[in-house]
Design a protein around this nucleic acid. Structure first.
Length: 491
RNA sequence: CGGGGUAUAGCGUAGUCCGGUUAGCGCGCCUGCUUUGGGAGCAGGAGGUCGCAGGUUCGAAUCCUGCUACCCCGACCA
């Protein structure tokens, strides 16, 4: 059991905050609302990036980079877009500092006021569409399938490390298409890419669907999303993919000549996931002993700890393990052989356990005598002594098992926490006592959605896309409804 | 932006009400010896402009005034 570590039951959000810091993933910085992602946490993010990047490339996308700064005037071009982001924009107004003539250190030079103020990007649609305008003249220029890895800034009132920070890292895909259907297909394809990534790599089961108008991205016609369920029963939006229609094409006058020589507005999409996925990862699998990482995203998949008293013993163990380490690396498994003599074995056990390393091997004098090794798995916290012979195959299989087990556990948890509610009382009772996802009928109006949010704090997380149709009555207004939607308390 | 709170060593804190030795303790850090199969033990040691700026006083971490930063609760949000 970890020392000085809050349990989930005691205080879930404190557990989360402590875990992120103590597992060496990230910490709060000197800048309000901004985090420092530490090497261990960043290594996890790099694995996510590498995997997603490959998935994007495999679906025909290329990376590019657009400016951090966006001229203020660009923002006002798309009305609902500016409305959605205006309240949380950082603005650059000056470009020079000077020494204070009164000797109070350095101050902003008022003479260096920018002609036009610059917005630090909260998202890049506007600068990108202003640029695409010059790239697109003919149907031969389409589609444009571009992604960028970048940082963005949203000046949030209240921040939480990884889940909501003033600055965060993400990728944003921005595509342009000749036809509406092609853009819709792209939007859905990317939602599916995100879902596949979430389930196969994060080992986090997700629901897929579309957002209600209230929750839709500012400037989108339709927002598709994936939603995960955290261990405290709250939902987390883990990725969004937007069908933007011709909104930005019209706002930035992006037209192309089609085969019939007619000027036509292009159709567009945008889609993104962020460092918020790091928070999703923590809250899906981790336990009261610390972080639990799915093998596919673990920077260290196998930690190996020698147990010895004398230098000769260490040498003998190292020699015995050298071929094992080489063979594991040969298989593409990331291994850390921790032969530091500045920490004791017990300390190392706790260290790797807290940092979520999926598999731990230990070899000491007894194993040397018996030709065995101790194998411990993080997900179940179980240990077994196994013969060294055949250990590579065993570990390979074990990593797969752990990956699958984590997904299955998370899936079982979610299955247990999806409930139907057929009345307002039942709905409120579930929210108060159990939380989780609630399937309920809704009359389809923003007014009702707003009322439900005000009275219960729950929001519509998504409207299932291929969900079964079922006639029913809205739990709040009693008006007719054709389909259940998914409600939850959310991050 | 409203309401509440906090600021003392890298981290966590005692002391503040009621001013008075060298600001104490735990973790961590450094040195040495003994240890090493689940966060070792003992001994010694380093580390503080008590958030900042004024004021009261013989004397301020402690009292007064102003400022700043951060945390929690709300409204806003990936």
């Amino acid at each position: 059991m970890a020392k000085n570590f809050t349990s989930r039951k005691e205080n879930y959000s404190q557990w989360y905050n402590e875990l992120v810091v103590k597992a060496d993933m990230a910490e709060n910085s000197a800048v309000r609302g901004c985090m420092v992602i530490k090497p261990y946490g960043y290594a996890i993010w790099e694995k996510m990036q590498a995997t997603l990047d490959k998935m994007f490339k495999d679906t025909g996308h290329s990376n590019a980079y657009f400016p951090l700064f966006i001229p203020k005037s660009f923002f006002s071009r798309e009305a609902s877009h500016v409305e959605g982001f205006a309240k949380e924009c950082a603005v650059v107004t000056h470009y020079r500092l000077k020494n204070d003539p009164d000797g109070n250190g350095i101050i902003v030079d008022e003479d260096a006021k920018l002609e036009e103020e610059l917005i630090v990007r909260p998202t890049s649609e506007t600068i990108i569409w202003d640029t695409y305008k010059n790239w697109i003249q003919s149907y031969r220029d389409l589609p444009i399938l571009v992604n960028q890895w970048a940082n963005v800034v949203r000046w949030e009132m209240r921040t939480r490390i990884f889940l909501r920070t003033a600055e965060f890292l993400w990728q944003e895909g921005h595509t342009a298409h000749a036809t509406e259907q092609e853009a819709i297909d792209e939007t859905i394809q990317m939602m599916n890419v995100y879902a596949e990534f979430a389930e196969n790599f994060l080992a986090m089961p997700v629901l897929k669907g579309v957002k209600s108008p209230n929750e839709r991205f500012a400037g989108a016609i339709e927002t598709y999303c994936i939603e995960g369920l955290m261990q405290d029963g709250k939902a987390l939006q883990a990725g969004t993919s937007h069908f933007l229609g011709q909104n930005f094409a019209k706002a930035f006058d992006v037209q192309y000549l089609n085969k019939e020589n007619k000027l036509t507005y292009v159709w567009s999409t945008s889609w993104g996931v962020s460092t918020r996925l790091m928070g999703a990862l923590v809250m899906t699998h981790s336990d009261d002993n610390g972080l639990v990482l799915p093998p596919k995203l673990a920077p260290i998949q196998v930690a190996i700890i020698p147990i010895y008293k004398k230098e000769e013993q260490l040498e003998a163990i190292s020699e015995k393990l050298a071929p094992v380490i080489a063979a594991l690396k040969e298989k593409g498994i990331s291994v850390k052989y921790d032969d530091r003599d500045t920490y004791k074995p017990g300390w190392k056990f706790n260290e790797y356990e807290f940092k979520g390393v999926p598999v731990r091997l230990a070899m000491g004098p007894r194993d040397m005598e018996n030709g065995t090794v101790e194998v411990a798995r993080r997900d179940t916290l179980t240990k077994e002594i196994l013969p060294l012979e055949g250990i590579i195959e065993h570990i390979e299989k074990l990593l797969e098992d752990i990956q699958n087990n984590l997904f299955q556990k998370a899936l079982d948890f979610r299955t247990e926490n999806i409930r139907k509610a057929d009345s307002w009382d039942e709905f409120k009772d579930i929210l108060e006592n159990k939380k989780g996802f609630i399937l309920a009928h809704w009359d389809g109006t923003p007014e009702t959605e707003q009322k439900i949010k005000e009275e219960s704090k729950a929001t519509i997380r998504l409207i299932p896309v291929d969900g079964e149709m079922e006639e029913g009555k809205c739990i709040y207004s009693g008006k007719p409804s054709k389909q259940r939607v998914v409600f939850a308390l959310s991050y």
